[in-house]
């Protein structure tokens, strides 16, 4: 009996306890250089094409029900003629202490051994709790089975990516860091009996970016592009601790994490835009 309870508790920890994995196999992360990002939106469409995200139409868009897994936010500062517009792409940050994971009553979202915030469609019952808890507002809810509403009207459905599930009504979804590409890369690596190489996994958004603002890779590897750009040492597990500050360990003065004070430990690292006026350097 005790053994059974222990096992149950262990299972509970895997799904519930942030930071259950002391060390990740890979620690997938993204670096977004805001000084390169132009806000063009190529990534948004690339994501939609790769991940079978339905088009919801004008009516549903007006109700705020678009399903795009990522978005470009724009901030307009100042009055004419001293106007500054700033862009920032926002996607699921696969937070280490993800608030959504604590929220879900049915364990439909949890952290896996690769540092990814997993969404399991089959488990999801659509309570919407995770979306309410998410500080970055990146979770999207399927209000309808859009496939039946004509979002993939024939022959548009011929384009659907066979490696990604087409979601149905009542399911929460979000950015997966293109898990199908990660799985494919791991599959290749396993064939050749090696680890996944840096740059081998390229999510759709990163691939499409014309100005090369996005970089994807493994934070465990100090030689990966992401580690170098973010100026991080090998295995920066300090970032997972409560109250950790990226600025403390990063060698790159431009590196920051979005809404770091909320303590969700996101794994998307932004590089500050270089811009006249409003400096936010050293802002704690």
């Amino acid at each position: 009996m005790a053994g059974f309870l222990d096992r149950l508790l262990e299972r509970f920890k895997i799904y519930r306890e942030p930071g259950y994995y002391k060390r990740y196999d890979y620690w997938w992360a993204m670096v977004v250089d805001l000084d390169r990002c132009t806000g063009c939106g190529a990534c948004v469409t690339a994501c939609q094409a790769e991940n079978n995200t339905p088009v919801v139409g004008e009516e549903e868009s007006g109700k705020g029900r678009v399903l795009n897994w990522m978005r470009i936010e724009r901030y307009v500062e100042g009055e004419y003629p001293d106007v500054k517009v700033k862009f920032i792409p926002v996607f699921c940050a696969h937070c280490d202490k993800a608030p959504c994971e604590v929220a879900c009553p049915v364990y439909a979202t949890y952290h896996n051994q690769d540092g990814l915030n997993v969404q399991v469609y089959n488990r999801c019952v659509g309570t919407f709790t995770c979306a309410t808890y998410c500080p970055y507002d990146v979770r999207r809810f399927n209000w309808f089975t859009y496939k039946d509403k004509g979002s993939f009207e024939s022959p548009l459905d011929e384009q659907l990516n066979p490696d990604v599930t087409v979601r149905t009504m009542g399911v929460m979804e979000k950015c997966t860091f293109c898990i199908q590409r990660i799985v494919a890369a791991k599959d290749r690596a396993k064939d050749e009996n090696r680890k996944v190489r840096d740059g081998e996994v390229i999510p759709a958004c990163v691939q499409s970016c014309p100005s090369k603002a996005l970089t994807f890779g493994d934070l465990n590897d100090p030689n990966s592009q992401v580690s170098k750009l973010a100026g991080l040492p090998a295995e920066p597990y300090y970032l997972r601790e409560s109250g950790s500050k990226l600025a403390k360990i990063s060698k790159n003065p431009r590196a920051y994490r979005l809404l770091e004070d909320l303590n969700a430990a996101p794994t998307i690292i932004y590089l500050k835009r270089v811009m006249k006026g409003s400096s936010t350097i050293g802002h704690e």
């Binding site: 805001l34 004008e58 868009s61 007006g62 678009v66 978005r71 936010e73 724009r74 901030y75 307009v76 500062e77 700033k86 862009f87 920032i88 003065p253 431009r254 920051y256 979005l258 809404l259 932004y270 500050k272 835009r273 270089v274 811009m275 006249k276 006026g277 409003s278 400096s279 936010t280 350097i281 802002h283």
Partner: peptide
């Protein structure tokens, strides 16, 4: 039909910036 609601940061430091001068020094 607009996708973005509010376009002000309201001091949340969402898009952080550094000035070109600071950038030169740091780099």
């Amino acid at each position: 039909v607009k996708m973005a609601g509010w376009t002000k940061e309201l001091g949340r430091d969402i898009v952080q910036t550094i000035t070109p001068e600071e950038f030169q020094v740091k780099e």
